[in-house]
Structures are given as C-alpha cells and as structure tokens.
Amino acid sequence: MGSQILMIGVLVMLLLSVTLVSSLTDIECSSVTALVSACYTYITYGSPDPSPGSPCCHSMVGLKMVSDPTVENRRFTCRCLMSLISTYNPNGYALATLPDLCEVSLGFNIDPNTDCNLIP
C-alpha cells in the first residue's frame, strides 16, 4: 500500500512538472535531467529493465511531451540528453535504450553521434 501511494505521488509530481515545463516556450536541461532521473537505477546499474507503465517509462512519456511541441524543443532536449550520455559514461548506452524499452519515440536517437541540429 505504501509503495502504491509513493508511486502515485511520483506520478503526480511528474505530471505537474511536465505540465509546467511544456507550458513554457523554452525548456531547461534541469527539467530533462529531472525526468531522466526516474531511470537512475537502470542507467547506473543496468537493471531492472524499465517497462511501459513503470515510473521510468512515465518519465520517458513526459520527456516526449516536453520535447514534442516544437523543433527547437526537440533539438534542445536532444542536446541535454547528449550531455547526459557523457555524464553517465560508461553507462550512456543504457540511457540510449530507454525510449525503445519504454516504447516511446522521441523523434531522434539518443546516440553520441546524433547531430541535434538536424532533428526535424
């Protein structure tokens, strides 16, 4: 019961942060980092794999919502994620696998070779 209440609290906070952030014309890397932080255990330790419906995957959905409104938001989100890859090095690959594991398309690949300026 306690874990369900905690999960609901986390989801409410996530939805509030996504709503607040998506209402802005510009997003900040701290918002992207906050969303990705829900996946910290997977990124750091490689397990457990997140699955659709998990807090981590809810964060990926939130990340998509934040980055979708404009091309500039997608490019900015991409740049923030690229910097996180180097932060989580050598576990950056785990970060790159999150959209597929969560069945979320961000509109670009999280890969050090992605040119964020070319994202449509």
Score class of each variant (00 low, 15 high):
residue 66 V to I: 15
residue 72 E to R: 03
residue 9 G to V: 10
residue 113 N to R: 14
residue 33 T to K: 07
residue 51 S to A: 13
residue 112 P to C: 14
residue 105 S to W: 05
residue 106 L to N: 08
residue 7 M to I: 01
residue 109 N to A: 14
residue 69 P to G: 00
residue 15 L to G: 03
residue 90 P to T: 14
residue 56 C to F: 09
residue 59 S to Q: 03
residue 20 L to I: 08
residue 114 T to W: 11
residue 71 V to D: 04
residue 18 V to F: 06
residue 92 G to Q: 08
residue 116 C to D: 09
residue 115 D to H: 09
residue 87 T to F: 15
residue 116 C to W: 15
residue 83 S to P: 00
residue 87 T to W: 15
residue 103 E to K: 05
residue 41 T to M: 05
residue 96 A to K: 01
residue 86 S to M: 11
residue 98 L to P: 01
residue 72 E to C: 00
residue 41 T to C: 02
residue 3 S to A: 12
residue 94 A to M: 14
residue 90 P to C: 14
residue 94 A to Q: 12
residue 14 L to Y: 01
residue 16 L to G: 09
residue 30 S to E: 12
residue 78 C to G: 06
residue 101 L to C: 06
residue 110 I to E: 09
residue 89 N to Y: 14
residue 41 T to Y: 11
residue 114 T to E: 15
residue 42 Y to M: 06
residue 117 N to I: 01
residue 85 I to P: 00
residue 15 L to S: 05
residue 97 T to I: 03
residue 59 S to H: 04
residue 65 M to R: 01
residue 78 C to A: 12
residue 1 M to K: 03
residue 92 G to T: 11
residue 95 L to K: 01
residue 55 P to D: 01
residue 6 L to R: 04
residue 110 I to K: 02
residue 100 D to K: 04
residue 6 L to P: 00
residue 58 H to E: 12
residue 44 T to A: 14
residue 62 G to C: 11
residue 57 C to R: 00
residue 40 Y to G: 00
residue 81 L to A: 07
residue 16 L to H: 03
residue 36 V to M: 06
residue 2 G to Y: 13
residue 10 V to A: 11
residue 63 L to A: 07
residue 26 D to H: 11
residue 89 N to S: 15
residue 37 S to N: 11
residue 65 M to V: 13
residue 7 M to F: 15
residue 106 L to M: 11
residue 95 L to Q: 06
residue 44 T to S: 13
residue 75 R to F: 13
residue 107 G to T: 00
residue 12 V to H: 01
residue 25 T to Q: 12
